[in-house]
């Protein structure tokens, strides 16, 4: 799981009508941790920065759906 994604295991009742999601997630983007940005941080190359949406690796918090097969935050095992 991405460092920008946190999770918890909510209570699931025996008679919950929807199949319970055993683990739920939420996003904690890097702006929560950076504080006032210091000068001289590492930068992306301009073309990469334009694509990513930020010049600063320290501020890049990519997102993939936790429901997408590739991310598999909610695996259906056991």
């Amino acid at each position: 799981m991405s460092e920008h994604r946190k999770s918890w295991k909510p209570y699931a009742g025996k008679n919950d009508p929807c199949p319970p999601l055993k683990e739920k997630t939420y996003e904690t983007p890097p702006n929560l941790y950076l504080g006032v940005q210091e000068p001289g941080l590492e930068q992306y190359k301009p073309a990469d920065a334009l694509k990513k949406g930020t010049l600063w690796p320290a501020l890049f918090g990519p997102y993939e759906s936790p429901f997408a097969p590739s991310t598999r935050a909610n695996k259906k095992e056991d």
């Binding site: 983007p29 890097p30 702006n31 950076l34 940005q37 694509k51 990513k52 949406g53 930020t54 501020l59 890049f60 918090g61 990519p62 997102y63």
Partner: peptide
């Protein structure tokens, strides 16, 4: 959409 979402993060910062 992912680009726009990243901009929200930068603005929040």
């Amino acid at each position: 959409l992912k680009f726009l979402r990243e901009r929200e993060i930068v603005h929040g910062q």
